[in-house]
Write a protein that binds this DNA or RNA. Structure first.
Length: 586
DNA sequence: GCCGTTTTCGGCCCGACTGTTTTCAGTCG
């Protein structure tokens, strides 16, 4: 069972408790919700925790939930959950997928409309909305009926998919441009997961400092590209853009903008953890500031910036990338936050494809070596690696491959540049773990990257053996886009990361953080594990065009979210240092 | 059902917005 499936199961149990218990035991429902969220945000597989008998190490999972999950992992069934779901029509869990419908409304709809089966439940609900039956239900009405009909349409049109960070940036830039046309904007910032630099973004959150929130919100909901307005109050409004993209805007006075930044940046779990800390100190936290819980004389305290906000809780300022309630609050308390990698630390790009025709069966780049070298100089790099794909296996014996590599070296030598260019190559890891070019050809390279481009579905065990076999060759230094995932398109391969990380640490192999926005691979949660394991990482843009060299910042985002510091990154080292490691390696 | 730097019992984050009523429950972030 995947983390997603376990999280869904626990969330369904939470909903079932809400329906059955009424107010009697609402904290049990909350506990299941928290356990569900904990697993959803868990870095590693919850099944691995179970394998090690450490389910209760997951915060939010206690003896009871652990016992129930144990039964599921062992037998695939659970008497407990069957009992929890008993008496709740399966249609309810379909209805919960619709925005605006929670457990209470879902059960009412199921009962009053007599829709019990999950099969076709949403279709039948849609019919009931059209025939006006929903409006007849007590405490529903014409308004609710309309909203439900609209939400069903959106649900059916496109299941909500998270955007790539690069897409979200573009959309946010447009909306910010529009809102900024209003003259009462004093400050405007994009917050939420985009500010935390998450690899994918769900909703776009924008905060505005202003003396006139009403005028801002009125202007905001007139955004020309919107498909509808979800809601609008005195401080907040939400609109929907094409492809079901939601944009939330919140406006406040300048003197509490710091609190607003903090609140709207999240993450939700980070904020909840902060509020729990505040509560123990007799304080209450909100987007408006901090106030006393039982002390009416204690006036709300405003914060102009985030530093003073965190300081008032005896915490050092926490970089947004770390705000996931994954240990950053404890580290801030102990003044032990990492000194995160910065874009300006990067001295090289170690995955670039030029237009040199290496006669590969994969794709080649669009830009010349000269263009790329010039751009790299502009970015302040000291060295780069050209890593075109290996020549196609068909029609190239080793002699021909060597010829091509030599020809490429001559081309590199003709580039007039101050930076050092390494003659490298991205070599396929074949299904059996062998490399796509021979030993002598590999010997001609300065170093090689290896990566998986076929047979993605191998078992964890054989995939791990396959990769370790490829990494064992002395010329291989980099394991590129290691999970081979394509965001929203292809899941990553299964690997025993503990073994991979250990091998790389012991044998001086570097694991890539591929900065291409559709990959961002190694993913942030595995970067965190790699850093903990003492593995050295490398950043590469996988550029096939000169302008993609700018994507390096997305790779830096991922590194930062994985708590990586300058010392963890090979291409944050100077050329002299890099060459020393390259030689000393093997 | 979970959890502990005042607790193994007694708490459990905070506020906005909507629709339906007329003071609030439900949902969301």
């Amino acid at each position: 069972m995947s983390n997603r499936e376990v999280a869904d199961l626990l969330a369904a149990a939470s909903a079932a408790y809400k329906i059955k218990d009424e107010q009697k035991n609402k904290f049990r429902s909350i506990a299941y919700d928290r356990a569900s969220a904990a697993i959803e945000h868990l870095g590693s597989e919850v099944k691995d925790f179970w394998d090690d008998g450490k389910l209760e190490d997951v915060p939010g999972i206690g003896p009871n939930i652990a016992k129930h999950l144990d039964e599921i992992f062992k037998t695939g069934k659970s008497k407990h959950f069957n009992k929890v779901f008993l008496g709740v029509p399966p249609s309810v869990f379909e209805f919960l997928k619709i925005t605006g419908v929670g457990p209470k409304k879902a059960i009412k709809l199921a009962k009053e409309l007599n829709i019990k089966s999950s099969k076709g439940a949403i279709k039948r609900l849609s019919k009931s909305a059209k025939s006006g039956k929903i409006a007849e239900i007590e405490r529903f009405g014409e308004g609710s009926q309309k909203v439900i009909a609209k939400s069903i349409k959106e649900h059916e049109a496109r299941p909500k998919e998270r955007m790539l960070i690069s897409q979200a940036e573009n959309i946010a830039r447009d909306v910010v441009g529009w809102v900024s046309e209003n003259k009462s904007v004093e400050k405007i910032e994009v917050l939420g997961s985009l500010r935390r630099r998450a690899s994918t973004v769900g909703d776009i959150d924008i905060a505005v400092a202003t003396k006139n929130p009403e005028s801002i919100l009125d202007h905001f909901i007139e955004y020309p590209n919107k498909t509808r307005t979800l809601g609008k109050g005195p401080h907040k409004a939400s609109i929907v853009l094409p492809n079901n993209i939601q944009v939330d805007l919140m406006a406040t006075e300048n003197d509490s903008f710091g609190s607003l930044l903090q609140h709207f940046t999240g993450s939700k779990h980070h904020n909840i953890a902060l509020r729990e800390i505040a509560q123990k100190k007799g304080l209450s936290l909100s987007e408006y500031g901090i106030k006393g819980i039982n002390n009416l004389k204690f006036k709300i305290k405003n914060f102009k910036d985030e530093e003073s906000f965190y300081k008032s809780l005896a915490l050092s300022w926490i970089p947004p990338e770390l705000r996931e309630d994954a240990g950053e609050i404890e580290a801030a308390k102990a003044n032990k936050l990492p000194d995160l990698l910065k874009l300006s630390d990067i001295k090289a790009d170690l995955q670039i494809h030029s237009d040199f025709d290496i006669e590969t069966s994969h794709d080649i780049g669009d830009s010349s070596m000269v263009e790329i070298a010039k751009k790299a100089e502009k970015l302040g790099y000291q060295y780069i690696g050209f890593t075109e794909h290996n020549p196609s296996q068909r029609g190239h014996n080793e002699r021909k491959v060597i010829e091509l590599i030599k020809k490429k070296r001559e081309a590199i030598n003709r580039v007039n540049t101050k930076i050092k260019i390494f003659n490298s190559m991205e070599v396929d890891i074949l299904p059996d773990g062998k490399l796509a070019i021979g030993d002598k050809a590999l010997g001609e390279l300065d170093f090689a990257l290896v990566s998986i481009h076929s047979s993605f579905a191998q078992s964890r065990q054989s995939m791990t053996a396959r990769v370790l076999s490829a990494l064992s060759h002395p010329k291989v230094k980099i394991f590129a886009h290691p999970t081979a995932r394509r965001i929203n398109k292809r899941e990553g391969v299964e690997l025993d990361w503990t073994k991979i990380f250990e091998f790389c640490r012991e044998n001086n192999r570097w694991i890539e953080i591929n900065a291409e926005p559709t990959r961002l691979d190694l993913p942030d949660y595995l970067v965190r594990e790699a850093v903990k394991a003492g593995v050295t990482l490398t950043l590469g843009t996988d550029s096939h065009h000169v302008r993609s060299l700018e994507n390096m910042r997305y790779g830096v985002d991922v590194a930062r979210r994985g708590w990586a510091e300058r010392k963890d990154i090979i291409n944050a080292r100077t050329l002299v240092e890099f060459e020393k490691v390259l030689k000393g390696g093997e």
